[in-house]
Simulated assay, not measured.
Amino acid sequence: MMKHHADGEVLGEFLVSARSLAEYRAMFHLSDDDLTGRRILDCPGGAASFTAEASTLGAAVTAVDPIYARSTTELSVDAVTENDRAVAWAAANAHRYRWDWYGSPAGHAAIRRGAARRFADDVRAEPHRYIAASLPELPFPDGSFDLTLSSHLLFSYADRLDADFHLSALLELSRVTEGEARLYPLLDYTGAPLDDLIDHLRTELHDKGIPTALRKTHYEFHHGADTMLVLQPAT
């Protein structure tokens, strides 16, 4: 059961957002070296244009999301309509966010809508890049990726995904990743901090031989969301 936050606001469904390569670079502190010639997993990929854009830079990107079970025609349409819902949520809750990276809510909406259109074009042209699957079980062999990026699922929906789910999902991301797995943000969708959950998960991962680190990002949309969790290669 979803718990209500103190302000009584509950987001009833998972949002499907369309984020751009520029946003990914900032959220995950990505360098050109991170993107060039690397096997990258984006999980969950949502309607992001990251896969399309990073592929043009020479990355071999695989996006994973349960929404990819839909037909490419449905995805192309839904990418725009569902992203509009996410944009509307942000605008309606503008007080939760810092808008300086985007310039304004209108700037944010323009970037997201452009990303949704780019995603829609790519999922039709290159459907093999988009795999229908979901955490905490992924259909890839151990060490399939050099870098994994995961945003706005884990931690964001801590009101409905419990600590055991988080741990299972993080272990799975570590399993399929030869290098680092980077997760952002470390707040829930209302902007509430999750320090106890993060401390618990880091301890559990450390005990299982997976070092972790907290690393500052170049992006802060939710107030205080300026840090990512990094899972380092298992020892």
Results as ranks from 00 to 15, higher is better:
18 A>E: 08
225 A>S: 11
69 A>K: 05
232 Q>E: 15
232 Q>H: 15
52 A>I: 02
80 V>K: 08
170 L>E: 00
127 P>F: 04
209 G>F: 06
226 D>A: 15
1 M>C: 07
229 L>V: 03
224 G>I: 08
114 G>C: 09
183 L>A: 01
4 H>D: 03
119 F>D: 04
40 I>A: 06
141 P>G: 07
49 S>K: 11
230 V>Y: 03
76 S>A: 15
4 H>V: 08
232 Q>V: 10
109 A>N: 07
108 H>G: 00
115 A>M: 07
151 S>K: 12
27 M>A: 09
92 A>H: 00
193 P>I: 04
171 L>M: 14
87 V>W: 09
107 G>W: 12
124 R>N: 05
30 L>P: 01
23 E>R: 07
217 T>S: 11
111 I>P: 01
169 A>C: 03
72 T>N: 09
64 V>K: 10
118 R>C: 11
2 M>H: 09
204 E>C: 05
51 T>S: 09
90 A>T: 13
234 A>Q: 10
92 A>V: 00
225 A>K: 10
203 T>G: 11
228 M>I: 02
104 S>G: 05
184 Y>F: 15
64 V>N: 03
161 L>G: 02
149 L>K: 15
139 P>H: 07
184 Y>R: 13
56 T>Y: 04
22 A>Y: 14
200 H>A: 14
225 A>L: 05
39 R>Y: 13
95 H>S: 13
115 A>C: 11
78 D>G: 00
157 Y>Q: 00
55 S>D: 06
136 P>T: 08
189 Y>R: 02
147 L>V: 00
141 P>M: 07
217 T>N: 03
193 P>M: 04
198 I>E: 07
108 H>L: 02
186 L>N: 08
82 E>L: 10
154 L>Y: 14
187 L>F: 09
40 I>D: 04
162 D>F: 12
220 E>Y: 10
81 T>Q: 06
11 L>I: 13
234 A>M: 11
10 V>I: 14
128 H>G: 09
126 E>L: 03
168 S>A: 15
148 T>F: 05
67 I>K: 04
53 E>T: 05
11 L>Q: 12
32 D>Q: 15
151 S>H: 10
233 P>K: 05
124 R>T: 08
205 L>K: 01
106 A>E: 13
56 T>M: 12
194 L>W: 12
136 P>Q: 06
161 L>I: 03
78 D>S: 01
229 L>N: 01
123 V>N: 07
231 L>H: 09
5 H>N: 14
190 T>M: 12
186 L>M: 09
100 D>Y: 04
80 V>C: 06
104 S>K: 05
170 L>M: 02
75 L>V: 02
182 R>I: 01
185 P>H: 07
180 E>G: 01
72 T>L: 02
146 D>Y: 10
162 D>N: 12
16 V>I: 11
211 P>M: 06
68 Y>F: 14
99 W>D: 01
101 W>Y: 14
182 R>H: 00
44 P>S: 03
56 T>R: 14
209 G>N: 11
160 R>E: 08
131 I>S: 00
94 A>R: 13
35 L>V: 00
13 E>T: 15
193 P>K: 04
162 D>A: 09
137 E>N: 10
110 A>E: 14
28 F>A: 02
29 H>I: 08
111 I>H: 14
17 S>E: 13
86 A>Q: 08
120 A>W: 14
17 S>P: 05
39 R>Q: 15
68 Y>P: 04
89 W>L: 09
67 I>P: 01
